[in-house]
């Protein structure tokens, strides 16, 4: 049995023809090769879209771009966990490998999901530094290199949605904005120019569905493919919103 497993890889893929269709599963078998990953396997299925029992089917639909774990596109649920498919090595996965879409988000088709809510959230938290324009103004401010390093860490966030999928408080049942956008707000609050709008961002996070919906399950920090210390920054934002609340009460 083990011998056979070395030569082929079996996938059980949860498919769905459209947003309102019923999900179903199909089994695929592809030849094994060293260093094979899930995206490469799906590409293999594209080249020969035939199920294990010989039925010719439409190739599996999914999203991927860079295959280097920087674009965030290929997030899906692999053996129960949200992660990037491009760096999910077959050798490290238990077979048969179950692939499913991240159902925290609306499914478009098969493994393709609609993550536009995450980009909308970035609008909500005012995820940008308010500069006057792209023209020359003067020298950019000097920054504390340690703070810059923290910013660099957070700025790796590729909006993949792993933390949202893993978070029990994010999903259709809740309006929680999720860990990634919350921590992005902190990123802009760290920047010497971005912090001018800190108050706005914090007040947004104090609204319904903001950071207060965090239930401290701390799955996010485990799920983050970029190892961003999400819980640490969530606690920091918690601290900041509490201070902001006091300011809101006593400064006006």
């Amino acid at each position: 049995m083990a011998e056979q497993n070395k030569q082929t890889v079996t996938f059980i893929i949860e498919r769905q023809d459209g947003p309102d269709s019923k999900p179903y599963t199909q089994e695929f078998e592809i030849p094994y090769r060293p260093a094979l990953n899930v995206v490469a396997s799906l590409m293999e299925i594209q080249k020969n879209p035939v199920t294990k029992d010989g039925k010719k089917v439409a190739p599996v639909v999914w999203e991927c771009n860079c295959l280097e774990k920087v674009c965030g596109a290929c997030m899906m649920v692999i053996n129960g966990r949200a992660r990037q498919a491009c760096c999910a090595l077959i050798d490290e996965l238990e077979q048969p490998i179950h692939l499913a879409p991240a159902r925290t988000f609306p499914v478009i088709r098969d493994l393709l999901i609609d993550r536009s809510v995450m980009f909308e959230s970035l609008k909500r938290i005012q995820g940008w530094v308010e500069i006057d324009g792209t023209w020359e103004v003067k020298d950019a401010p000097i920054q504390n290199p340690y703070t810059a390093q923290t910013a660099y860490e957070i700025s790796h966030c590729m909006t993949c949605g792993c933390c949202l999928e893993a978070c029990p408080n994010v999903g259709p049942q809740s309006d929680f904005i999720g860990p990634a956008p919350t921590v992005q707000a902190y990123l802009f609050n760290l920047h010497p120019l971005g912090k001018f709008d800190k108050e706005k961002r914090l007040n947004t996070l104090m609204e319904k569905g903001g950071i207060t919906s965090c239930g401290n399950s701390q799955n996010c920090v485990q799920a983050c493919p970029k190892n961003i210390k999400l819980t640490t920054y969530l606690a920091q934002v918690n601290r900041d919103v509490n201070k902001q609340a006091l300011k809101n009460i006593f400064n006006k």
């Binding site: 792209t134 020359e136 103004v137 020298d139 950019a140 000097i142 920054q143 290199p145 810059a148 910013a151």
Partner: peptide, 21 residues
């Protein structure tokens, strides 16, 4: 060089020297 300054203002977390440039 002007583009770099613009990106810096936009918040690109460039790697910095010990004195912050």
């Amino acid at each position: 060089p002007k583009l770099i300054k613009m990106f810096d203002r936009m918040g690109v977390p460039f790697t910095r020297t010990a004195e912050g440039v």
